[in-house]
Design a protein around this nucleic acid. Structure first.
Lengths: 116, 116
DNA sequence: GACTTATATAAGCGAATGGTTATATTATAG
DNA sequence: CTATAATATAACCATTCGCTTATATAAGTC
């Protein structure tokens, strides 16, 4: 039995959970469980505009939940596993149904950026 | 290692997490981990009005996260342990710092309704 | 350099959120 | 029956949210 005593205060937790309380963001996070994902992939994945995606990622970045990595003209986002809140974040995501299908669909459409 | 595969869809999770993303509600939930709590106790606990407390509880009730039990003129709220989402709810609350102090403070002020 | 692609930022807008005050509603006390 | 205490609901309001369009910035292509 792993009693995951997390290192988040109640206020920090509330801020994180608020961001998690949106279907788009929650799906994005779950997709990132499978590894880094590029902005344009998220754009292809959802029915919202690119600026909307950018704004979601910005908010996740501001809370240190995700980190960005620039590769050429692309920006890849991934879960920040070094963040103090990561155990908390992971424990939640782990309980949600996989969103791997979203990545599969991208591959079928040839829109998956397989690194560069 | 207990792989708590929860029975919540991603959309359900997002709805629940949205409610958890508020400091007042999150504290209320954490307090209810210690057992049922009466509305007037919550009112004494926070710096917001009674209707505000009532509205928070209503939203938690609507998602089946808490249940109410009327005892005389009081209404006690507690975590709904029979709800399908309870394992998910519990796994989150468990990681947050205890809010027992809130109850202690009430006792000191003689405002704790010790059942009836 | 000019053109395209990927991303971010700014400004604006309708809907939702979290609070308030005012007003029911219901139960207990006298 | 009246008065009080506990709770819920209604109406309102300022702020935040999640999106949009328009525009800037930066890298890759020709």
């Amino acid at each position: 039995m792993s009693l995951t005593k997390s290192h988040v205060t109640l206020d920090q937790a509330a801020s994180i959970l608020k961001l998690f309380g949106d279907t788009t963001r929650l799906t994005m996070l779950k997709v990132m469980e499978n590894g880094a994902c590029c902005v344009c992939e998220f754009v292809a994945m959802f029915d919202i505009t690119q600026p909307a995606i950018s704004q979601h990622l910005k908010r996740l970045r501001e809370l240190d939940i995700v980190q960005e990595e620039k590769r050429g003209q692309w920006v890849f986002y991934s879960l920040n596993k070094d963040a103090p809140c990561y155990p908390f974040v992971q424990s939640i995501l782990q309980q949600l149904p996989s969103q791997q299908e979203k990545l599969e669909q991208l591959k079928e459409q040839g829109k998956r950026i397989d690194c560069c």
